[in-house]
Nucleic acid binder design. Sequence first.
DNA 1: CGATGCATACCGACTGGTCGGTCTGGCGTC
DNA 2: GACGCCAGACCGACCAGTCGGTATGCATCG
Lengths: 206, 206
Amino acid sequence: MAARHDSKTRLLDAALKVVRTRGYNATRVEDICAEAGVTKGSFFHHFKSKDDLALAAVAHWIEMTGGFFAEAPYHAPADPLDRLLAYVDFRKSIIEGDIAEFTCLVGTMTQEIHESHPALRDACAASIFGHAATLEPDIEAAMRQRGIAPDWTPASLARHSQAVLQGAFILAKATGDRTVARESVDHLKRYIELLFASPFARKDRP
Amino acid sequence: MAARHDSKTRLLDAALKVVRTRGYNATRVEDICAEAGVTKGSFFHHFKSKDDLALAAVAHWIEMTGGFFAEAPYHAPADPLDRLLAYVDFRKSIIEGDIAEFTCLVGTMTQEIHESHPALRDACAASIFGHAATLEPDIEAAMRQRGIAPDWTPASLARHSQAVLQGAFILAKATGDRTVARESVDHLKRYIELLFASPFARKDRP
DNA sequence: CGATGCATACCGACTGGTCGGTCTGGCGTC
DNA sequence: GACGCCAGACCGACCAGTCGGTATGCATCG
């Protein structure tokens, strides 16, 4: 176990875990080292500073979540709206276990560092909005397919879905209970269904 | 100026301002003192510790926001659904100015302290869910008046609205731009309109 | 009325612990 | 034998909290 040469990855994984639970500022370098089973020497061998690690951790997060969502089953349905709804279902289904396990690293960090660490904030933003952007093609396809020409854009709905999720995580942290988060995701799903189902939104209505 | 005897209030006001911008952990006691134009001695005369101040600041926040929303104009409309939609409009209209000015103190703090300070977390939760609860009567009245019997509860929609707002604030912090936040509030409003307008949700549909 | 005493409000130098970051030395591997 | 990788003692800045002190009411009594 704990082979040499993988300390860097283990530090990054540890950082994700610890920062997601404690937050960024409250996380000490030694907490991450302890979680990774590594010493400070190793930490500062791989990273110039704590902030440097944070940047790397966000990059690592983007890479991990990118793969995770790319391979998730929600892309299967043939219908684009079904894919979108399957995405929402999938997001709901992974709200499971410990808070740190389903919560978003970059959303958590953004709150703490948006004023003080512009570079880090931009990296967090790239993660959130990059992920949101992956939803746009399906939203746009669904709009075309259903003949809808609304006063909102695919991009704004994609961003809104991320807002709902981020907000749901906050409520979950406030209560210590996943239920309230799932509930909000249900509302998001209902919203999307209504957006595409409502006769008032259809081009072809009388 | 800066009469004696109001240091405590000035410290609380300063705490709201500084914590909303920097976050809780990154805020030093001396930052709050400087903002309040008061010294450390005064701080620790009024508060046992930084955590003690945090608790008092949340209580102060609950009191301030309680009065602010109670006196806001959105209660004017006679129709309960109109009141609810006016609330959403109002929330959108106050997303203005500096990020710290429209952002939520307790949402920010929750993220940082939910694991480490249970008492503080409960106080934050009380603020969020207490505010959400003020929306329930109007939601319920609107449901009755429009003859809607949906599969969601007034409480859950009230909580969802808070989730959207909290999430919108995160996106605003990530981009440094209010626009994304307002956009999400627009989606929330559209959702509520659809919920009450959709024939699929009506009791009296064929 | 002034003096005396006491409580509350406030000040700011200081302390003691904490934590990011450094440095020296060692171990394995090519 | 040099170089990447790591260990952990150590340093120094920083900061929550302390402590001895001063200032300002506000009673009560002679």
